[in-house]
Design a protein around this nucleic acid. Sequence first.
DNA 1: CCAGTATGTCGAAAATCATCGAACGTCGAA
DNA 2: TTCGACGTTCGATGATTTTCGACATACTGG
Lengths: 113, 113
Amino acid sequence: MELMTVLLEQAHPPVTELRLSKVLAALADPGRLATVRALAQKGESPCTRLQHDAGLQISRSTFSHHQKVLREAGILLVRVRGAERILSLRRDDLDSCFPGLLDLVLNTPEKQT
Amino acid sequence: MELMTVLLEQAHPPVTELRLSKVLAALADPGRLATVRALAQKGESPCTRLQHDAGLQISRSTFSHHQKVLREAGILLVRVRGAERILSLRRDDLDSCFPGLLDLVLNTPEKQT
DNA sequence: CCAGTATGTCGAAAATCATCGAACGTCGAA
DNA sequence: TTCGACGTTCGATGATTTTCGACATACTGG
């Protein structure tokens, strides 16, 4: 149905639209940084599970906002599986646009984040 | 002594205090990103000159603010030479804490910034 | 179809950030 | 010692971001 399709549509920027300042801004928030790091360990994860794994004590709507920022920066991929949204990292796209950035973020000790 | 006073005026975080989220937040602003890129080309430069080289059409006080953000994140080194403040990148410190980050920023085409 | 789970959206409040001009301090030169 | 160049700090303002609770939408199992 049309309504369903529209609402479920996820806006992911194509690789050609990825911008360094957007990616850096998205990663600059400690909560979002923790989200990315947790997601890298899990491989993929639904929202609520990921929020828990990242240790974020925030409301669902706030997490939804952060997820949106990460998605619009080109860091996250969101796909629908039933009632869930499965989040995963756009590793290949990030590596091709900004080689080393994701590895750096993931390899940085938590102490230095 | 005069020299002592001058040296203490500048608050530079030690290497052990550098934090990824602070560095990313500092670099996330397009103007500051341009400043860092211009500074990398110049090697070192006084404030006004650097602002011009970075192509920033902002007031001196605003640039001073950005310089402060970059300095407090550990990205810039500021030393006094007469009436001027000479800015330079803390390349070695950044490379040792966040290897590849500065290179990535400098190697990213302007189009993708 | 209903009840429960999962998640996004909206509107508002609070916090943070970018920006400016005015006022200030310091330095080097006239 | 006065002056102009360089830069910082302060206070205000508007923009952006973070955060929440309430509501809406979508799927799933009974």
